[in-house]
Design a protein around this nucleic acid. Structure first.
Length: 355
DNA sequence: AAGCCCGCCAACCGCATGAGT
DNA sequence: TACTCATGCGGTTGGCGGGCT
């Protein structure tokens, strides 16, 4: 049985809001607030509207300090960076852009920015002397990532990350054009894992990458999950994110539960403090495929290069411990491809950008 | 001038989640 | 524990307006 509708649809007005309706809603909320109840608000405000409609109108249009109009280049960069990192989590992206609504950003992305990136991707490649990301990577500044200003529960409480491999690929050119990343096509951070394995027989390449300010799930979205068709398995990751993040102090216990109940583990989606606990044991990252017959299990053991790296980073992580630990921890790891056990050199596997 | 096409964006829809009971 | 319901979210739709033929 489906759930009951939130309102009597035959009795509510739909479609565009009139100035009179806007006025009523604005006046009521400014005078009385929402009262924590949108369902009853329209009646109190004298509106023949669904509560959800009122809420949307208020949040996306009427509330104070809403910014409309052109997006700046800086906003473009933030949107691209975050989209590459966490996918279409518009509410989270909007939280980084004061005055912008998730709806605005979503529309902007779907109608303009995406196309802009496509156009830029068709532009000629940068000249050969364009420096690699190894040379221009910015040092991590623990006081910078705006994502860390949010609570974890806010970050991870909802829905899926639906970024696609093509989405990541699309973003790359813009980032390059803005000098945010290098020009190593073989190190394209937006390749899916599938592409990574297709392109690299050994574990010596650097496609196990993170692009973003250091949110835990962000790392997962960018680096960990790919499905058998090469697309990113955001839903899976997201469900992990939900499970883990809600009770920050209970992560390790929950990780253990997952260890028992799931064959697919996305180590890099774990918060840093969990990874930190894995210094001695290491973690496995398994690329899980739905169809067992065709399953090509890719198993990566990812461990910090040395305990000292992790410990030292932990010590200086007071301000934004999660981000800081995470980045330092993963910036220098051993990636061991079990299928191809030939290269265990310590390598710099992760690229990151902070704004 | 009329008709068509298409991009933009406000609004809607369905679903997941969490709080309350 | 099970259920209901309000809220918040991302995906999608549909109307409007501008440009083109």
């Amino acid at each position: 049985m489906g759930r009951a509708p939130c309102c009597d649809k035959s009795n509510v007005k739909r479609g565009p809001w009139s100035p009179e309706e806007d006025g009523k809603l604005k006046e009521y909320i400014e005078k009385c607030g929402t009262g924590g109840n949108w369902i009853s608000l329209p009646q109190k405000a004298g509106l023949k509207r669904c509560g959800k409609s009122c809420r949307l109108r208020w949040l996306n249009y009427l509330r104070p300090n809403i910014k409309h109009g052109e997006f700046t280049d800086e906003e473009d960069n933030i949107i691209c960076t975050l989209f590459a990192t966490i996918g279409s989590r518009w509410s989270i992206i909007a939280a980084q852009l004061p005055g912008r609504t998730d709806n605005d950003i979503k529309n902007y992305w779907n109608t303009k920015l995406k196309k802009k990136l496509i156009m830029m991707s068709m532009a000629p490649p940068p000249p050969p002397h364009f420096p690699s990301y190894h040379h221009q990577r910015k040092p991590f500044l623990p006081n910078s990532p705006p994502l860390s200003a949010q609570t974890n529960s806010h970050l991870y409480s909802h829905h899926s990350t639906s970024a696609t491999a093509s989405g990541f690929d699309m973003i790359s050119p813009l980032l390059q054009s803005n000098n945010l990343m290098g020009n190593h096509s073989s190190n394209n951070p937006f390749l899916s894992n599938k592409q990574y394995y297709n392109n690299n027989n050994s574990s010596s390449s650097s496609n196990l990458l993170v692009f973003g300010g250091g949110s835990h799930e962000a790392a997962a979205a960018a680096s960990c999950s790919s499905n058998s068709d090469g697309s990113f398995g955001g839903q899976q990751l997201s469900s992990y994110g939900r499970d883990f993040i809600h009770d920050h102090d209970d992560h390790i216990k929950q990780e253990n539960q997952h260890h028992h109940h799931h064959s697919n583990k996305f180590m890099l989606s774990y918060p840093t403090n969990i990874i930190t606990t894995s210094i001695n044991g290491g973690y496995q990252m398994v690329d899980h495929h739905e169809n067992l017959e065709e399953q090509e299990v890719k198993q990566l053991t990812v461990t910090p290069s040395t305990s000292d790296d992790v410990i030292s980073s932990s010590k200086s992580s007071d301000e934004h411990p999660d981000n800081y630990n995470y980045s330092l921890l993963l910036s220098n790891v051993v990636v061991d491809d079990d299928k191809n056990n030939s290269n265990k050199d310590v390598q710099e596997k992760l690229m990151y950008y902070y704004y």
